[in-house]
Design a binder for these strands. Structure first.
Lengths: 256, 256
DNA sequence: AAGTGGTCTAGACCACTAC
DNA sequence: TAGTGGTCTAGACCACTTA
């Protein structure tokens, strides 16, 4: 007889939580791949030694977290949100007429440098830490609109190269996930007005001293681990930043 | 014998969904008030003629939507988020050091005018509609930081006066709720850069032509009914706008 | 000790999908 | 028709709160 989950770890952790972790472990181990169906509920409930109801509660939560997708009558599948769309919700610049577009990225610079004090604070790094810093110019509808200056820890992103960044086929955050197993699940952005310096004036095709929107973003993974620090400068003559707030549906788990 | 829910409406709607609506109806009818406990699960399941499991699924969703709050061993309570704090989450300007403050408001102007085409579009008004337009200057930490220009329909806010606005003891949205029964539950904001005109230069104590952050907001009630149109101009030399995004925890039930 | 919500079971029947 | 997830039942026992 195979030991049940609760027999393996008789702690105060609820059974469905243990099942959830077991499923996540199986996913991490590559037992089921993106887009594939996982075994039917009946089978999984037997495998983990729990009732259907408990198994379903575990799966429910994984579905809520966009890790699995259910299709009635077909099965439950590993979400394929990685490729592109999933992370696109973090991109919040649209044309003033409301038209959305997928940005074209052009890598401008890539450096391996000592982290400034500000970057160390945002990324919770200790003095002496080094980071990869790279600059992207983004175009929307063929217009240069945004310049991103991005910093990530060289420990967390060990081995990151200029070529990897240039050749990535997908969203930057999707790239983080695929190449480094790092999941960006939340961002905190601050927005203010700035003026274009010489470099940005060239990249955005504006006058030096022209007013720009400046976004300062920390991207977080699970457990509020900071992953990326980013400063974006946006030419808002024809574009704007989207902010939305809603009272219902979902707390703000990380506290405003 | 009291008829069960499913007997009353034998449509394709799941039972737990019907239970959820029945609970919402009871809340709307004032049967249980803010902060009060609702009856225990056992009792409710009998009242609605469903099993505990089904009743729990309905309550689960209401808890997810922040309408109810559960406390193990104590009971389930109607969430209390009205008076002031509740609406404060729509206020997203903070000092650059992260310090938050409650704004001091000074009413600068109050007019009853014909709605411009832009305002009519944002508030879904027909040609010829009139609106109340008023201007507020907001101070944070004693500094003039924000100027709001606000438009609301004179039909929806029938009888609104300058004195009411000046004397309100609470948040503007709390005032809408108390005086007009209008609930703001969501906002859609767009952010861009603008320059100070003569009026704003005086009110914000900046030079004419100085760059400002411009927020353009539509506030919505239930069923995505637009309630208020607002343009805010912010001096971001010492303040900034907060934007956050999170992947997990709750869909957006009202689909913004 | 009594009452609450939290977890869990071992099924049942239904709606949908694929073959 | 067979197999999937979607819904629902009628309980059980546990952890926590209040008195």
């Amino acid at each position: 007889m195979v030991p049940t989950l609760s027999q393996l770890s008789p702690t105060g952790v609820p059974l469905y939580e243990q099942v959830k972790r077991a499923v996540l472990a199986a996913l991490a181990a590559g037992e089921w791949k993106q887009g594939e169906a996982i075994p039917p509920e009946k089978l999984l409930s037997e495998r983990f030694g729990v009732s259907i109801g408990t198994l379903r509660k575990a799966i429910d939560e994984l579905v809520m977290e966009n890790i699995l997708v259910r299709h009635q009558g077909r099965g439950t599948f590993v979400a394929i949100h990685s490729q592109n769309q999933h992370f696109f919700k973090f991109f919040r610049i649209v044309r003033q007429d409301g038209e959305k577009a997928y940005p074209a990225t052009e890598l401008q610079r890539f450096r391996h440098i000592a982290a400034s004090e500000e970057v160390r604070e945002k990324l919770h790094l200790s003095p002496g830490s080094k980071v990869f810093e790279f600059v992207n110019a983004l175009s929307l509808h063929g217009e240069k609109v945004i310049v991103d200056t991005i910093c990530v820890s060289d420990v967390m992103f060990r081995g990151l190269t200029k070529d990897q960044l240039r050749d990535r086929p997908s969203t930057l955050y999707s790239f983080y996930q695929q190449m480094f197993g790092i999941n960006v699940i939340a961002t905190d952005e601050r927005v203010r007005v700035a003026v274009a310096d010489a470099d940005h004036a060239v990249l955005l095709n504006v006058d030096e001293g022209a007013p720009l929107l400046e976004l300062r973003r920390v991207a977080y993974s699970f457990h509020q681990t900071p992953v990326e620090w980013r400063v974006s400068k946006v030419d808002t003559r024809r574009y704007e930043y989207i902010g939305q707030e809603h009272m219902l549906g979902g707390q703000t788990p990380y506290g405003v």
